[in-house]
């Protein structure tokens, strides 16, 4: 019945068009479509398509990022309606994400966040230059399942170890999983500092998070 609208929602994600996404979501709600249906029947298939195309090398990071922006714009419209209806979008888990203290590199961490959200995780991005302690405090406050720590400099990657220690001090280990990433970071470094995993890139980060949470 609402097939055309679902297709349009799917397409606005593929086109990475936040304005179109807002308009279509408003139309969907006005037409009586349940917010959760708009997400599951329209937006998510669009995201899946972008993810597949990216994995095949047919789509690129800007396509991925803009699809994420369109998704963010769409869910901002649908969220209040969902709450009113008492519906909850099932997520794969809660992820707290940030670039470690002393490091202001944003890109890698943001890409990971985009891919995780697109794949159905609830992502709380703490930004850059995040104090070690803040990762732990936020993880507790939000009842996070995974903490992701990014470091782009050889001089700041040692801070990932401090984050592991902070989570231990707060008694959050081993329940809360810690994953690390960033240009100088390696699998063996992750193992050395007692992290639960290392992701080579944004796609690997999604696979890692799913494995760690048994999804």
């Amino acid at each position: 019945m609402h097939d055309d609208l679902y297709l349009a929602l799917r397409q606005c994600i593929i086109d990475g068009d936040p304005e179109q996404a807002i308009e279509l979501c408003q139309r969907a709600l006005a037409a009586g479509i349940a917010a959760l249906d708009a997400i599951n029947e329209g937006l998510v298939p669009g995201l899946n398509h972008v993810g597949e195309q990216f994995a095949q090398g047919e789509m690129f990071l800007p396509d991925l990022v803009m699809a994420g922006e369109a998704m963010k714009a769409a869910t901002a419209i649908l969220e209040p309606a969902m709450q009113k209806a008492g519906a909850r979008r099932e997520t794969l888990g809660k992820v707290v994400l940030g670039t470690v203290q002393g490091d202001i590199h944003e890109i890698g961490k943001t890409l990971v966040g985009t891919m995780l959200s697109a794949s159905g995780f609830e992502v709380h991005d703490l930004g850059v230059d995040v104090p070690f302690e803040t990762f732990a405090v936020k993880a507790r406050e939000l009842n996070a399942d995974v903490v992701g720590v990014s470091a782009l400099l050889t001089t700041t990657m040692t801070g990932q170890k401090n984050v592991v220690e902070a989570l231990e001090r707060h008694g959050l280990r081993p329940r809360v999983k810690i994953v690390v990433g960033g240009a100088p970071v390696t699998r063996s470094w992750g193992e050395e500092i007692g992290a639960d995993g290392y992701g080579e890139d944004a796609l690997a980060a999604v696979a890692l998070a799913k494995t760690l949470l048994g999804k």
Binding site: F60, L61, P62, I107, G108, L111, D201, A202
Partner: peptide
């Protein structure tokens, strides 16, 4: 340039 596939 930023590689649009790998992000490197």
């Amino acid at each position: 340039i930023f590689d649009m596939r790998s992000g490197i």
